[in-house]
Design a protein around this nucleic acid. Structure first.
Lengths: 243, 243
DNA sequence: TCTTATTGTTGCATAGAGCAACAATAGTAA
DNA sequence: TTACTATTGTTGCTCTATGCAACAATAAGA
C-alpha cells in the first residue's frame, strides 16, 4: 500500500513532472438518488476544482490518472476512462494559480511550474460512494462530495469538463454494463433504475427496464430480500462480470 | 487562403510550439469500396507515419488539429473529431526521430525538440476522397492514401492509434449521420450501404438499411438516376443537414 | 426480344420497448 | 387481526425497428 506523501508546494520537485500536461478527474459517486462529484478546495483561497494531477516523466498517462484517483479516494481498482483532452487558450488563466501560490507562500513568478499553459486530459471514474474516503492533496485542504445539480462555481473550465464527462457517461451507460461500479455490492432493481434515470435525465419504463436487466445476464438475483422499507420487499441483485 | 510555409527542420523555430504535445490525424477517405487512410513518408528514411503536428503556444488544441489537416489535404471545413490521447511510455522511442533528423542533416541531440517524450492527441477526419489533394509537409517527401486492409508498417504506436480511430468511427456512424462526409456530393443507396458495411465490418440487410436511411430524413432523393452501370439504374441521393 | 443482375417496394416474422393490468406483499392504521 | 396502501414482480398487448423473402421494375448485354 502506497503511503501518501504529504508535501507542500515549496517542497515539491516539479521538475519530475512533464511540463504543460495535467490530468483532471471527474469522480462520480451515487448516494440517496443523487449523482455526486468529488470536489477539492484549494488552501486559503476558496477556489473549488476537480481533483487533478500531473504526469511523472517516466509514467504512463493512464498510470498518472490512476495514481491521482488513488490519492484522492484511497481506492484501488476503480473504473476509470479517459474521455476528452482540453486545450483551448481560454483555459489558460493564471489568475487562479497565482492565488493558490500566494496562499501557499510561494512567489507566483511566470516561470513557476504551475503558471504554465496546461493541456489537460480528462478522466472520469465511477466509485462506490460507501467505500470511497475523500482525501485532500498537498494543494488543497478539503475534499468533498457535491451533488451534481447543485455544483458550486469551479475554477477555469472545470464545469465544462464535468459536462463532457457526463455526456460520455450517458453514452456509455446505455451500451456497457458499467453502472454497477456506482452501486454498492447488492442493490434492488429500483435503485439501479433510479441511478440510470438520474444519469440519463429521463424517466425509464419500470417493467421494460426490469426485463432488460434480467435478460442481459449481468445480474444475479440474491435469494434474500431487502427489508425495512415499506411495502413489498424487493429482491436484491448483484452484478456478475463475465464476458 | 493560407500559403503553405515550406521550411526545413533546420529553419523551423521549434520554440513556437508547446513542448511535449503532438497531434496525430487519422484521415479517412473512401474510394472503390475501400476505406483509406492518409499516410506520410519521412524523407530518406522509409519511415511511414500518420500526418501529425504540434500546437503553437498561442493556439487552441482543436485549431492545431484543423491546421494540420488543412496543411495535409488542402481542404477546409472538414469533419474532425478528437478521439483519444496517447501517453504510454512505450511510445517514447527516439529511434525513429533520430533517423528522421539524421536524414535531414540535423544533429540528433537529446535536447532537440523532436527528441522529447510526446503526449499525442488523436483526431480523426472524414474527407471526400475525390476532393482531397494530399500534400507532404516539411518532414516528409510523400503523402498518399493507403487501403485500410493493407496498411504498411508504421512508426511507433500509429497502428494502435488507427485502431482507436476506427473503433470510434464505428460507434459514431451508428449514432450520428456523419458518413456523408466520406461520400461525394451525390451517391446511390448501394454505395452508402457499402461504406457502412466496410466501416462496421459486417453485412447490412439491404432493405432494412434502405428504409432506415429514407425514414431518417437525412437523405434527399434526386430525381435523376445514375446510369452507366449494368441493370436497373439506382436513384441518386444527397445528404440534407438540418438538425 | 430475351436474359440477367440489381434496385425499389411491400408483407411477414421476430425482438425490444412502452403501457396497462393484476397478483403478491411488507408495512401502516384501524 | 384485519383492511388499506404503496411498491414490486410478472404477464399480455401494442407499436416500432429490423431481418428475411418475395416480387415488380429496369438498364445493359446477348
Amino acid at each position: 500500500m502506497e503511503k501518501p506523501q504529504i508535501e507542500g508546494i515549496k517542497d515539491t520537485d516539479w521538475s519530475r513532472f512533464l511540463p504543460g500536461i495535467s490530468i483532471d478527474c471527474v469522480i462520480f459517486g451515487y448516494h440517496d438518488r443523487e449523482l455526486k462529484i468529488l470536489i477539492l478546495e484549494f488552501k486559503n483561497t476558496g477556489y473549488l476544482a476537480l481533483p487533478g494531477g500531473f504526469v511523472y516523466k517516466d509514467e504512463d498517462l493512464d498510470e498518472a490518472a490512476e495514481r491521482t484517483l488513488r490519492e484522492r479516494t484511497s481506492l484501488d481498482n476503480i473504473y476509470l476512462d479517459q474521455f476528452h483532452t482540453f486545450g483551448n487558450m481560454e483555459r489558460y488563466d493564471t489568475e487562479y494559480m497565482r492565488g493558490v501560490l500566494k496562499a501557499n507562500g510561494v512567489a507566483a513568478t511566470e516561470d513557476h511550474f504551475l503558471m504554465q499553459r496546461f493541456i489537460s486530459v480528462g478522466y472520469y471514474a465511477l466509485v462506490d460512494f460507501s467505500k470511497a474516503h475523500p482525501t485532500p492533496d498537498k494543494l488543497s485542504d478539503s475534499c468533498f462530495w457535491c451533488d451534481l445539480d447543485e455544483l458550486p462555481e469551479l475554477i477555469q473550465d472545470h464545469r465544462l469538463i464535468i459536462q463532457y464527462a457526463l455526456d460520455t457517461l450517458k453514452e456509455n451507460i446505455e451500451h456497457m454494463p458499467i453502472s454497477y461500479n456506482l452501486m454498492s455490492e447488492t442493490f434492488t432493481m429500483g435503485e439501479l433504475r433510479s441511478l440510470h434515470e438520474t444519469i440519463l435525465e429521463k424517466k425509464i419504463n419500470r417493467t421494460s427496464f426490469h426485463r432488460k436487466m434480467v435478460n442481459s445476464g449481468n445480474l444475479k438475483r440474491i435469494g434474500k430480500k431487502k427489508t425495512g422499507g415499506a411495502h413489498r420487499a424487493p429482491y436484491l441483485y448483484r452484478f456478475v462480470k463475465d464476458n
